[in-house]
Amino acid sequence: MIRVRSLTVEFPASAGQMRRVLDQVDLEVAPGELVVLNGVSGSGKTTLLSVVGGLLRPTSGAVEVQGRAVAKLTDTSAAAYRRDTLGFLFQQNYLFDRMSVLDNVALPLVAAGWSPGRIRTRVTETLATVGASAVVDRTIAELSGGERQRCALARALVARPRLLLCDEPTANLDAAGRELLLDLLDERKSSGVTILLATHDPLFDSAPHVDRVVRLEDGRVVTT
């Protein structure tokens, strides 16, 4: 599903110097696998997910998802890739505060050309699976942190992607929410969805459905 080869990402740092955040990273994730990406703050987890998600062009190296070179996609095919193949759950959930939950979760479907009727049905369904059916017509600003996290998850899942990238998915969840998240990931995994998940939550170290834990340290993979 995912094949990362000698991936290097550098960001401009002070005084014209470049800071290397990912250094020759190799990673393969098979279809249907659940891989946890582990590492301290600043080790490059979000950066790696961004490159795989086509949100960031790497300095060098290759990233292929389902055989397509993500960094080389044209604008329209990159958009189609993010919309149809990929669900991205961000660390900061990036929801629009003053818009309704419905409008937020619907964003990928609007881009995909869905009609309002179909959108509403699918969004309601998806919100039910993340346990947030009650909030469909409220605005994001009225929601608790956990409710927001569920909405963000719903937006990542709404187009039923084959690949799910999750960045700190448990950050704002209580015990019940974490249970629900694990069940949900499990359910997606069993329907064949590939999941790459970045976290420093120890919950995932012992979770039953995790296939592998990959550890990042200073931009390098240390254990596979």
Binding site: T76, A79, R82, Y94, F96, P108, A111, R155
Partner: peptide, 13 residues
């Protein structure tokens, strides 16, 4: 604009 792109919107859209 960043969120829109991340959720699958093309530049044209």
């Amino acid at each position: 604009i960043g969120v829109l792109r991340a959720t699958g919107w093309s530049v044209r859209q």
